[in-house]
């Protein structure tokens, strides 16, 4: 309830398993959802919405069966209103045009090309989630264990994140 979660969309089960392995540490503080296509992600988002949960980060492959990653991220940003949600494209073969479109319209925040290094992914996810909490002005305390605590403390000090009484 009122949790921030991570959504991973990739139609390659092998890659999805790798992501799951790399994000094991973060999974202790953040629920992580996996979907093999944009269409399969839809009911997951809807269900989480009902629970009052919001995606802090969406990691999405570009080439998917059905709707492609960039279009999905654009839709998430504008139609679903997840403006603060960090959006990350992780892909082997996006064209330059796709990437530009993603940047311009989807407010793509990070681009990572496959294959990636394990600790690299965990570090990026940590940074992106930290950025999400600061931008969304959300109380990070319940899930701070997987965040960059120095940046969070600094944001609390500067009043960028609301501080409880």
């Amino acid at each position: 309830m009122n949790q921030v979660y991570v959504l991973c969309v990739d139609d390659d089960p092998e890659d999805l398993r790798q992501i799951e392995k790399d994000l094991a540490g973060i999974g202790e503080s953040f629920p992580i959802e996996y979907a093999e296509s944009a269409e399969a992600a839809q009911p997951i988002i809807a269900h989480r919405n009902e629970e009052g949960d919001v995606p802090g980060l969406i990691i999405c492959a570009h080439v998917l069966s059905g709707e492609n990653g960039v279009d999905f991220l654009i839709r998430v940003n504008s139609d679903l209103g997840f403006v603060d949600t960090r959006k990350m494209l992780i892909t082997r073969n996006a064209t330059f045009d796709d990437t530009i479109k993603g940047l311009n319209e989807g407010r793509l925040n990070y681009f990572l090309s496959k294959p990636w290094k394990s600790d690299e992914l965990a570090q990026i996810v940590k940074e992106q989630l930290t950025e999400y909490f600061i931008r969304a002005r959300k109380n990070p305390m319940p899930q701070i264990e997987a965040l960059d605590s120095m940046r969070i403390l600094d944001a609390i000090h500067k009043g960028l994140i609301p501080r409880e009484v």
Binding site: S149, M150, L153, D154, I156, H157, G159, R163, E164, V165
Partner: peptide, 12 residues
């Protein structure tokens, strides 16, 4: 709260 947040960044 703000004091603690700042001091923790110095202490860590």
């Amino acid at each position: 709260t703000a004091t603690t947040a700042m001091m923790m960044t110095m202490v860590i």
